[in-house]
Write a protein that binds this DNA or RNA. Structure first.
Lengths: 164, 164
DNA sequence: TCTAATACGGATATCCACTATCCTTATGGA
DNA sequence: TCCATAAGGATAGTGGATATCCGTATTAGA
């Protein structure tokens, strides 16, 4: 079980858009070049973010994307679910109903509550999502500013600004 | 991102094996019939559990599987990782190294520590695994005994016992 | 007004993991 | 000896992820 590569791309793109001046837009072309990923395919991830209302796009030359909300109002979970979907990682297919010992009444009775196994798996899924929800884009920017060499951080900011 | 169906099968099979008498073995055929899943394919999941040391198999007629450890010593995480693998759900491909602004020195410098985005994603992955690790097979048996109608619980126990 | 660059979405092709089945081998109980 | 079983290799089928291409509407700038 592995998240799509688009999740990684989307998170990196959001971290870049988070550094954009308020009125600027950054085009897919620039984001693709910055991360070394195919523009056409990255475009699909950005469209997913746009459909989820996390970023807004504008057409025409000098068009592109910007964040639709403050960085403190966008969480990792928002981005992950925009790309990956919000369906649980565990799907209960109800195989307990195939128990040859079970009568029709048993099945109807069991169906009133979710399977004990599913409950545990869904609880773990919730723990994962809760963890993702606890980190905002603003937190990420703080981490990046601490991690990335100051010189590279500055040059990248200028590179983005020149294309915004 | 979705867990394999074999994870669900493996968990249900373990819950059944947990009710086996100490010296009994239950064959793949019986487990497949009980859950209404293809025997040949379920066999792969059971082999994975066996390779992980969670269950032990024995050959010949009256052969089959039993738990290799006490139910209090097997967690959901053990079962999930046996089938699904223990690799993180998030893979950092290091696309930040493709930054055209980065020099060779920048890349070497960054490579000393993991990406800030990866850290967050791995922390969420850990929260998921911690949650799975906190529930044992013995807990699951307790939940099932509470959830499943007493009559069905008894009949299923007898069905298994007759084949162990 | 015209041109070019862009977002957006549909269509298509490729690749790979998951799903599923079949077959052979070794083992052990009757 | 015979048969049922675990174990594992080989081989498709299926569907989602990856990737590319194209057409359309929109808009900034010449």
């Amino acid at each position: 079980m592995q998240l799509k590569s688009q999740v990684e791309w989307a998170l990196h793109c959001c971290s870049i858009l988070a550094g954009l001046p308020p009125e600027g837009y950054l085009a897919t072309r620039a984001l693709a070049e910055l991360h070394g990923v195919p523009k056409e395919y990255l475009s699909k991830a950005l469209q997913a973010l746009s459909n989820a209302g996390l970023i807004t796009g504008t057409l025409g030359p000098s068009g592109g994307y910007r964040l639709a909300r403050p960085t403190s109002d966008i969480t990792f979970l928002d981005v992950v679910e925009a790309v990956e979907g919000s369906a649980s990682t565990f799907v209960c297919t109800g195989i307990r109903d195939n128990n040859p010992c079970a009568t029709r009444a048993d099945i109807d009775d069991c169906d009133r509550g979710p399977c004990a196994i599913a409950r545990v798996m869904w609880q773990a899924d919730k723990a994962w999502r809760d963890s993702l929800r606890s980190v905002r884009l603003s937190d990420l920017r703080d981490s990046l500013e601490r991690d990335i060499p100051a010189d590279l951080w500055r040059r990248t900011g200028e590179w983005v600004l020149a294309r915004a």
